[in-house]
Simulated scan of single mutants.
Amino acid sequence: MNVRTLCLSFLYTQDASGYEIRKLCTEGGGAYFVEASFGSIYPALAKLEDDGLVTSRIEHQDGKPSKKIYSITEAGRAAFCDALHEPLGDDIFRSPFLLFARFAHLLDADLVKSRIDDRLADLDAQIAELKELQQQIETGDEPSHANDAWVVSYGINCLEVAHRHLHTHMNSLIASARRRETRIGQQAAE
C-alpha cells in the first residue's frame, strides 16, 4: 500500500489538512498502517488533486496561518476502493529493540534488563492507547465503522503476544548478556 492510498483512506472518512494526515499517520490508530512523512504526503496530495481524486480549499484561522483542507471526490472514493483490490504486499515490521536483542550477548546484563523493562513499558503504553481507542469506539465517542473495532482488537492482541513473549523469555536474553565483572576482567586482561 502506498502513501497515495493512505491519504485517500483518511480522506474517505473526514476532510483533513496535510498536517492532520501526517498526525494521523504517527498517532493513534493510523500509525499502524503505513509510514508516511511530510515529504511524501504533500506530493501525494498534490498528485491526487491533479488527478481529480481530491479537492482542496483554504481555511483561514485567527492568529494562525491559513491551512489547505483536502476532501475526497467520488472519483477518489472509487480509486481508493480500486486500490484495495490490488495485492497488499508484505507487512513491514522494524524494531530497534530486536536489533538490540540480537546483540545482547555483547552488553552488560544490567543494560539488557533495563532495555527489556523499557520495552515492556512501551508495549504497556501502546496496549493502553489502543484499549482507550477501543473504548471510544465501543461508546461511540470516536466516529468509526464496525471494522475499526476489529482492527484495534487485532492490534491489541499482537502487542499482548509480544509483551507476553518478552516477559516470559526475558531471563534467557538477560542470561546471554555479559556480567559486568566479566567485561571488566576482559578489559583489564587486554
Rank of each mutant, 00 (worst) to 15 (best):
M1V: 04
M1P: 10
R4H: 01
R4P: 01
L6S: 02
L8T: 07
L8I: 03
S9D: 00
L11K: 03
Q14N: 09
D15K: 14
D15Y: 08
A16H: 04
S17Y: 02
S17L: 01
G18K: 00
I21T: 01
R22N: 09
K23C: 11
T26Q: 09
E27S: 11
E27M: 12
G28Y: 08
G28S: 07
G29I: 13
G29W: 11
G30M: 01
G30A: 00
A31G: 01
Y32F: 09
F33M: 13
F33V: 10
V34F: 02
Y42I: 10
P43C: 10
L45N: 00
A46D: 11
D50F: 04
D51P: 02
D51G: 01
G52V: 09
S56L: 00
I58C: 03
H60R: 06
H60V: 08
Q61S: 07
G63K: 12
K64M: 09
P65R: 15
S66A: 15
Y70S: 00
Y70E: 05
E74C: 00
A75E: 03
G76T: 00
A78D: 07
A78C: 03
A78T: 13
A79F: 01
F80D: 09
C81V: 12
C81W: 08
C81S: 12
A83K: 09
A83V: 14
L84D: 05
H85E: 15
P87R: 12
P87G: 11
P87I: 06
L88H: 14
L88W: 09
L88T: 14
L88D: 13
D91E: 02
I92C: 00
I92T: 07
I92S: 03
I92D: 01
F93D: 10
P96W: 07
P96K: 05
F97D: 14
F97R: 10
F97L: 10
F100V: 12
R102G: 06
F103D: 10
H105V: 08
H105L: 04
L106H: 04
L106A: 05
L106T: 07
L106S: 01
A109K: 15
L111A: 05
L111V: 14
L111W: 05
V112I: 10
V112Y: 12
S114C: 11
R115C: 05
R115S: 05
R119I: 00
L120S: 11
L123C: 05
A125G: 14
A125P: 00
A125S: 09
A125T: 04
A125H: 08
Q126D: 13
Q126P: 00
A128N: 07
E129P: 03
E129W: 07
L130H: 10
K131E: 15
Q135T: 11
Q135P: 02
Q136C: 05
I137F: 14
E138L: 02
G140T: 05
N147V: 10
D148C: 15
A149D: 12
W150T: 15
V151N: 08
V152E: 12
V152L: 12
S153F: 03
S153M: 07
Y154G: 08
G155D: 07
L159M: 15
V161C: 04
A162E: 15
L166T: 03
H167K: 09
H169F: 15
H169I: 06
H169N: 13
M170V: 02
R178Y: 06
R180A: 14
R183Q: 15
G185F: 09
G185N: 11
Q186G: 13
Q186F: 11
A188W: 15
A189D: 15
A189F: 14
